[in-house]
């Protein structure tokens, strides 16, 4: 059930983002890009969210017993993910996807800031935010 709700949410966010970047107003395009990047972040998190239910932090007393199956991936047994145990498959949530999302969020923060300043500068130079009026360059 959770999978389905998350999948529908991501799909709707992608749809809204795509709709927004097809608008003629520059600010809406910028908002569309932001929504698209958030949809992507959700997609990345969702690719690892429901595999396990334990927090991927190995504390001292568990470290000895855990180190055996951390970083085990055995192609001959058809085990693909790096963090799985021998018996109980995937008891830990994949921590890597959260690190990836964090990186993607930081990058999208920087690009959004740049994009908004660029919108302001284009408005200063052209006097409009309507993209259909800003077409001095002909592709």
């Amino acid at each position: 059930m959770n999978h389905m709700i998350l999948a529908i949410t991501i799909a709707m966010l992608f749809g809204i983002g795509t709709f927004m970047i097809l608008r003629k107003d520059m600010i809406r395009v910028a908002i569309g890009i932001t929504i698209l990047s958030h949809a992507t972040n959700l997609l990345i998190v969702s690719s690892g969210a429901f595999l396990g239910d334990k927090v991927p932090i190995i504390t001292d007393q568990n470290a000895g017993s855990s180190s055996g199956f951390i970083f085990t991936d055995d192609l001959s047994q058809g085990i693909l993910a790096p963090i799985v145990s021998n018996g109980a498959q995937a008891i830990y949530v994949d921590p890597l996807v959260q690190a990836l999302t964090l990186t993607a969020i930081v990058i999208s923060l920087a690009t959004t800031a740049f994009l908004l300043i660029l919108c302001y500068r284009v408005y200063q130079e052209h006097g409009t935010t309507d993209l259909s009026e800003i077409r001095r360059l002909k592709g």
Binding site: I33, L36, S37, F114, L118, V122, I134
Partner: peptide, 14 residues
């Protein structure tokens, strides 16, 4: 130039 960069940036982001 700003118009060109706007195109470049939006398409690159997509």
């Amino acid at each position: 130039k700003l118009e060109a960069i706007f195109k470049y940036l939006i398409l690159n982001m997509v």
